[in-house]
Design a binder for these strands. Structure first.
Lengths: 345, 345
DNA sequence: TTGAAAGCGCTAACAT
DNA sequence: ATGTTAGCGCTTTCAA
């Protein structure tokens, strides 16, 4: 590979100054046509590819947005078997990512995706931040102070985390209302009264969902539990953390799960134990990932508008790039109960 | 947003030189511990995030790999309806992308994804090229001369295109052998003799697959067609190009499709016409995308190791980054016939 | 162990 | 319409 050509090479080859070369690319209309053609010809002849680093340095913007993602699988996990279903369907993060991709392209931005690398999250996210004009993160995965720091330099939006008193913009959905809605569906339309909420409270989303669950029980005059069932997990051969249920767990009339992932695991456990869903027990999820549509029985859930969220993330970022003084934004998007088989419908 | 802190700010705040700041980050072991702590403290205090542009300019590498992707949907397409299945399952490009993501993270690289933006492909791909240390492309979507140019600056690998006499590395699969194998399965195990190959020859992959189809027919002593059926397409409401079949098409005993996409469309058409698969006619695909597992009947196909390909892409790129003089590589990965319902099994 | 200084390739005033 | 030139923020010899 020959050493890469630079503006200087192109300028010399075309017999013009570097400013003209730069101008020819950036503002073609301000260069005489003949000169422009000359420049382009030289550029082509020399295989000139402008350095985005230099350009970014010079004009302070990169034209790239970033997403710090993560993976549900442990790094050392065995490769997936053919037809193994674990990671085949797009997950929550994948769909958000997809929305961002589409929106980025539409606005002539590129998307840079980073994830937990060997070095560890904090370094990596900082590294990505250095590359981009705006960054989206799933904050649960990162130390808040690192985010604050980055937010001091470029706009940052936190996905799926309720607004905090930080400098980040936040985009979430109506977790509480959505969970209340499915729960009420179970109570009202399926006459289930003994409901068990399964899932941790750790991401703030979990808390909101549990709150919605309690709202529904309270409104129905049912006993309101103080705590959810926080299930243990085991690591599957392919590296995923799967839910396990105590053997002696008394069967409720419905498992109301904090996420589709949990619900899907529970569906599997129940199938293995020969418990019929929804005949003996109903199961609901939350998120609306694709796998729930394919599960048997199909999973009743609350759908987040994930692709829309991804698009919105990009729009918020672009607004803040255009006007850095703009204060952080907080958006809460509506969700939608998706009634399928597992609730008894 | 306060103006971003730079090395200079950190240096001043810590009372050291910018060289020391830089060193503290890049080679911590070569800086006295007390100094280093001082620098880090200042950096944190000032919300310092190193500029990747400046770093990239200075040391000639960015730590980013690029992928120029594309989308099957037309830009102006209506938003997908809830539960509309078109783009819900990961497609070929998505799975390759996923493999690249994982491999990038593993090697402490970030992945930059670009796609056709309003500006048009060539500009965009050049732009991305300027940002990264190595680039992967689906070449069908891009003018070859743009790729040649880029390949003069950074390593480029073309995915799913047979080796050419260019400066690109190429990663493909055994399209011909794979197609021959499914076709033989149809002939040998299902006694189908009147087979119709559906799909264009345009990407070189299509040609190889058609060749494999012909191989199988020839070996079986059947009549070998000169041309495939190149179906017309229509644009669906959501913007996808879907195959259409002539109303008067005589039914073969099997549709051997060049891709899963085509096969899935045909499955749908046949269902609409009340033709039973596989009882009346068999259908096979090629690629092994997830949607084929979920279709009814489930789709017999030839699986490409897509995630593996993505990983391999990254490895090839890194090899060439490490040694720019290295000549282009050509890899052909094996494929695997995945027998499901649509062939009659 | 640390500092001074010379770039890296490009953009955008400003000058011509 | 085009050229001159001063940075942009960082890395990296080379000196001290």
């Amino acid at each position: 590979m020959a050493k890469a050509a630079t503006v200087y090479d192109v300028a010399r080859h075309a017999g013009v100054s570097i400013a003209t070369v730069s101008m020819a690319f950036r503002r073609p209309d301000r260069v005489k046509e003949s000169t422009r053609d000359l420049v382009f010809a030289s550029a082509r002849a020399l295989h000139y590819v402008p350095s985005a680093s230099a350009r970014g340095l010079a004009d302070g913007r990169t034209g790239v947005l970033g997403l710090f993602s993560f993976d549900y699988f442990l790094p050392s996990a065995a490769p997936l078997e053919p037809d193994e279903s674990c990671r085949d369907f797009p997950l929550y993060v994948d769909e958000i990512q997809r929305g961002m991709e589409l929106a980025c392209w539409q606005h002539d931005y590129a998307l840079m995706i980073g994830g937990p690398s060997r070095a560890g999250g904090t370094d990596t996210v900082t590294d990505i931040a250095g590359h981009v004009d705006g960054l989206a993160v799933f904050p649960q995965t990162l130390p808040p102070d690192a985010l604050e720091r980055i937010a001091g330099r470029i706009p940052v939006v936190a996905v799926s985390e309720p607004p905090q008193d930080d400098r980040l913009s936040h985009i979430t959905v109506d977790n509480r209302g959505g969970m209340r809605a499915v729960t009420e569906h179970l109570i009202r339309d399926h006459a289930r009264r003994d409901l068990l909420f399964v899932g941790g409270l750790n991401p703030a989303e979990g808390r909101a969902r549990f709150a919605g669950f309690r709202d529904a029980l309270r409104a129905a005059g049912l006993r309101v539990p103080r705590k959810p069932l926080v299930p243990q997990t085991r690591v599957t051969p392919s590296g995923r953390a799967a839910v396990v249920l105590p053997d002696d767990l008394p069967m409720p009339e419905a498992f109301v799960c904090a996420t589709d992932d949990v619900a899907l695991d529970i569906l599997e456990i129940l199938a293995a134990r020969g418990v019929r869903v929804p005949a003996e027990v109903a199961v609901t999820g939350f998120d609306g990932i694709v796998a729930g549509r394919v599960a048997r029985p199909t999973l009743t859930t609350v759908r987040q508008p994930m692709v829309e969220m991804g698009r919105l993330v990009v729009e918020v970022l672009l607004r803040h790039i255009a006007d850095p003084a703009r204060p952080p934004e907080f958006c809460e998007l509506p969700v939608q109960v998706v009634v399928r088989e597992s609730c008894g419908c």
